[in-house]
Nucleic acid binder design. Structure first.
Lengths: 149, 149
DNA sequence: CGAGTTGTTGAGACACAGTCTCAATTGTGG
DNA sequence: CCACAATTGAGACTGTGTCTCAACAACTCG
């Protein structure tokens, strides 16, 4: 998802296209892999974009409700975000370079249904996250760039 | 998992059986559903057990590595713990009363393998969490006790 | 059983994530 | 161009989790 897409998404949903939001859209679009709220805050500050902490959190929250971004729970217990397209899906996260891939819900649905049947729970929501090495990192490629600013 | 089980697990792993650890084992064993570090800290303080904040976190960390307890990521973004028996498994969490049930890895394994094949990732770890209503809460039972202290 | 060794502890400082308030600012529709 | 409402930044605040360090208490060994 590129900068205009994010901006357009905001616009379509009736949000104002403010300068801080445009800046953040650009920062987010320029990211590979996942990033944290802290990453954005640091980068915004480094580039003297004049975007406040609170605004970063608020904007991420908005983007999450719009589905332009999704929040991940890392193994470490921290949170991170990834840009994404589809409505409901999951992610494989490379623990080395931070790259993520979306994966669809497909086969999982049956598993969830089976669990609901066995436990008697009414399952409303679920979350699946996979961690490992992306093909490049698994191959030990030096070119497997570590994701950061 | 009851108090002695937790204490025994600590002992077998070579940890000292200190008073604070025994107290926490008892608190944890007395919990239904999930609980947070904050819950334990509050209860320990309320009962004047003289167990410090840091010790609660440290003990939970130890118990997690021993597999006596597992950490959950709630939808809210917070963390909680549940006592559990088996090595690798997942949980269904009732969003109303906090009750949890363990579910085994069974059918999921195939899904994970399929995803690894499709994406080319080497998947080392994964996490699945389901949220919904337990049978009692789904039935609207008033007896579906809210889990807390 | 009594002393030494060493793991463990509590208090409090600290780091960090995230939320909230509120006055000042800025899009946007008219 | 104006007025109004949404949005913003600064900073206070809350909560979670980590770290340090001196005091302490389990286990071990004699």
């Amino acid at each position: 998802m590129d900068t205009p897409s994010i901006v357009t998404a905001l616009d379509r949903a009736g949000y104002r296209l403010t300068e801080p939001r445009r800046s953040l859209a650009a920062l987010i679009a320029g990211r590979a892999g996942h990033f944290t709220a802290g990453d954005l805050i640091a980068e915004a500050r480094a580039r003297r974009l004049g975007v406040g902490r609170a605004t970063v959190f608020r904007t991420l929250e908005v983007l999450e409700t719009l589905g332009a971004v999704e929040r991940l729970d890392l193994l470490s217990g921290g949170h991170a975000y990834v840009v994404c397209q589809r409505a409901h899906h999951h992610h494989v996260v490379c623990t080395q370079c931070g790259r993520t891939n979306e994966i669809d819900d497909g086969d999982l649905r049956a598993v969830v249904n089976e669990i609901a049947r066995r436990t008697g729970y009414r399952v409303d929501d679920h979350r699946l996250e996979l961690f490992g090495l992306c093909p490049a990192c698994a191959a030990g490629q030096p070119g497997a760039t570590t994701v950061s600013a």
